[in-house]
């Protein structure tokens, strides 16, 4: 019971997500919901490495694309019938993406942060161009997946719930990592890599492990996306805007937090889908996106979730840490509320 009451907000949040397609049955909105969930999973997964370790990766579309192509190629070569069985291939998309992440991480994590950003971009372009130029990927005309003939009214629901399962899964993994020894090592790398190394953290191994882990859910999201679209094109699954969108969502919500990426992705992806469906004007979207982004960075550089939390509790992270340290050290029932009182 204590566990439930402590995490009441989360339970309500996921229950609301689970009920959404039952209440709102309009396919226009449930399809926005599918995209939002796929981005929520991707952003949470991205945050699990880049948010915790401070290594900003701008090539996560590689894993999204690999997942999507794995789904499409396996479905075609194994002649999987066009029904719910196609969903069993989704974890395979994630596994293949993870397998690709090992050599990519090994190559790109040999350098320091700023060069890492650029190498992830370069690796991304190698994958995008390869998908366009190889013949087994169908070239620039892409691949068509088995055509699913479900009724139009609730066509979106299986994809929606597959996305939701993925979001719940990766949120639990991310929460677990955050509290684990491994997560602490990632955070130590973010705060001061040299010192972490000096304290005996195997920084390279930890970084590569974190990077590889973050590929799985993004690969799964790509696989679900491929199924949902029914047809994939190299420039849409290996999409440079995916790379930056995911990073943007995490920064907007609050990098390194658990709720931030979920909230950022939910708001931004829904808004983007809605705007592109309503106004076909790309420039308006760019201006809105860029403007919003600038405002957030300038006025709440730590992201919306930490900003609001600090406003609500009137405490900053530093003060909270001090209080937490006090709570542990002083078992007295009357816990001092601010660190100033302790020193006085």
């Amino acid at each position: 019971m204590k566990l439930l009451s402590k995490n009441l907000g989360w339970v309500v949040f996921f229950a609301a997500l689970a009920l959404f397609p039952l209440v709102v049955t309009n396919p226009f909105y449930t399809s926005i919901g599918v995209y939002a969930l796929l981005f929520m999973a991707s952003a949470t997964s991205w945050n699990m490495f880049s948010g915790y370790s401070g290594y900003i990766a701008l090539g996560s579309a590689v894993f999204f694309g690999v997942g999507a192509y794995t789904e499409a190629l396996l479905a075609l070569h194994w002649h999987v019938p066009a029904n719910g069985n196609l969903f069993w291939l989704v974890p395979l998309g994630g596994i293949i993406a993870t397998a690709f992440a090992v050599p990519i991480g090994w190559i790109s994590l040999r350098v320091r942060r700023h060069t890492f950003v650029v190498i992830t971009i370069a690796v991304f372009f190698i994958f995008q161009l390869s998908a366009i130029n190889f013949s087994f990927t169908g070239g620039s005309s892409g691949l068509a997946l088995p055509y699913i003939t479900w009724s139009a009214a609730d066509f979106n629901n299986p994809f929606y719930y597959a996305g939701l399962i993925l979001v719940v899964f990766i949120t639990l993994v991310s929460a677990f990592v955050r509290r684990s020894r491994f997560g602490l090592q990632l955070l130590a790398i973010r705060d001061d890599e040299d010192r972490a190394m000096g304290l005996g953290v195997q920084v390279t191994a930890i970084k590569i492990t974190g990077f590889t882990m973050s590929a799985f859910a993004i690969g799964c999201a790509g696989a679900i996306y491929a199924l949902f679209q029914g047809q994939i094109y190299p420039q849409f699954v290996f999409d440079p805007t995916f790379d930056v969108s995911v990073a943007l969502m995490v920064f907007l919500g609050g990098i390194g937090t658990l709720a931030g990426p979920l909230l950022g992705a939910l708001v931004l992806e829904s808004a983007q889908q809605y705007l592109t469906a309503t106004y076909s004007n790309n420039s308006l979207y760019l201006l809105l996106f860029g403007g919003l982004f600038l405002i957030v960075i300038m006025f709440m550089p730590q992201g919306v979730v930490p900003f609001v939390r600090d406003k609500l509790t009137k405490r900053t992270d530093l003060e909270r840490a001090a209080v937490a340290a006090n709570d542990v050290s002083s078992p007295s029932p009357v816990a001092p509320s601010t660190p100033t009182e302790v020193t006085a």
Binding site: L248, L286, L287, G290, G291, L294
Partner: peptide, 10 residues
């Protein structure tokens, strides 16, 4: 990147 989006949009 945000500046980029604003210029590109304009």
């Amino acid at each position: 990147y945000a500046v980029w989006l604003l210029i590109e949009g304009t």
